[in-house]
């Protein structure tokens, strides 16, 4: 008993030795700055007016509560996250189902799908802003007019700008959902589908009763990962619209960023970032709670 304890003691010490550098690095690089962020959210830090700096108490948060631009950004974050994730999952799933049916050439789709994923979001934002959406130059603009529709100022008018940034995000990340679903579909047992065909389930019924339930874990994982990425989206919007026109596409990330680095109001920017942090943590908490499988029949 005692000797065994000793052996485990050695293992524990070794394990601690292996994890310590990584954990210490995480503590220093993430937790310490976050603590600093929380601290600075209770300060007035304005690089434009350094003479005002000092302890502010909850004043930044009070201000935030009454800040209509904050609530606007919050609403846009919700719309942006929800719609882009929903689109990614639906389109990605549809595309994966489609490509699974194709007898040959699946590899082309896999290669093409990897391209948007590996591109820098800032470059994606720039490409869309210039080559695709720019008035009288971009291909989308050209296509819209060629089809006989009225010209739309994609990035210069409020609603089209919001639609555009959602579309850009969806364009870049749908391949992610597609690839995950494709891999999941490929790993499903074939004989189960044959059994379903013999049991007279048609294609739609097979999808509804077999595919969807079996893909549930993959769908949930994709939703979790995509929500997280959506909530921290920055570069593509920043490059495409900069949050504009006005605040039409200014999600919380951009508002916090601009408050800090454009208006140089770091205290208030910190408070905005803290609220974003809390929202992100709450959303991830809920998603992970949903994800944990719960037995429907206890004890079975």
């Amino acid at each position: 008993m005692r000797r065994e304890d000793g052996a485990h003691q050695g293992e524990r010490r070794f394990a601690l030795m292996l994890t310590a550098p990584g954990m210490l690095a995480l503590l220093l690089t993430t937790t310490f700055p976050l603590a600093y962020l929380v601290w600075s959210s209770f300060q007035t830090i304005n690089l434009a007016m350094p003479f005002m700096d000092g302890f502010a108490g909850v004043q930044n948060y009070v201000e935030m509560w009454h800040d209509s631009r904050y609530w606007h950004a919050m609403g846009l974050t919700g719309i942006y996250t929800f719609s882009s994730v929903a689109l990614q999952v639906v389109i990605g799933m549809g595309l994966a189902l489609l490509v699974m049916q194709i007898p040959a050439g699946q590899w082309i789709f896999r290669i093409v799908a990897i391209l948007p994923i590996v591109l820098a979001p800032v470059v994606v934002g720039l490409f869309w802003r210039t080559l695709m959406l720019a008035p009288n130059f971009g291909m989308v603009d050209f296509l819209v007019q060629w089809l006989g529709f009225e010209q739309i100022n994609w990035l210069g008018a409020p609603t089209p700008a919001l639609i555009s940034v959602i579309a850009i995000h969806t364009w870049q990340w749908t391949p992610f959902a597609f690839l995950v679903f494709l891999a999941s579909l490929a790993s499903l047992p074939g004989d189960v589908y044959e059994a379903a065909r013999i049991d007279r389930a048609n294609a739609l019924q097979r999808f509804w009763h077999i595919t969807l339930p079996l893909l549930r874990p993959a769908i949930i994982i994709v939703i979790i990962m995509r929500v997280m990425i959506s909530l921290s989206a920055f570069a593509a919007i920043f490059a495409a619209t900069g949050g504009g026109p006005g605040t039409a596409s200014e999600i919380l990330n951009l508002y916090a960023f601009k408050t800090s680095f454009v208006e140089l109001n770091f205290g208030y920017g910190s408070a905005l970032a803290v609220s974003l942090l809390i929202i992100t943590m709450a959303v991830s908490g809920v998603l992970f709670y949903l994800r944990t499988p719960r037995r429907r029949e206890a004890g079975a």
Binding site: P33, L34, S40, S232, N253, A273
Partner: peptide
């Protein structure tokens, strides 16, 4: 520690860039 590592992965970068700048 495992949960901690996972949680750090969730931190939005905007929440880090502000304190890091300061």
């Amino acid at each position: 520690m495992g949960f901690y590592t996972l949680a750090t992965q969730m931190v939005p970068p905007v929440g880090l860039v502000i304190p890091y700048f300061l």
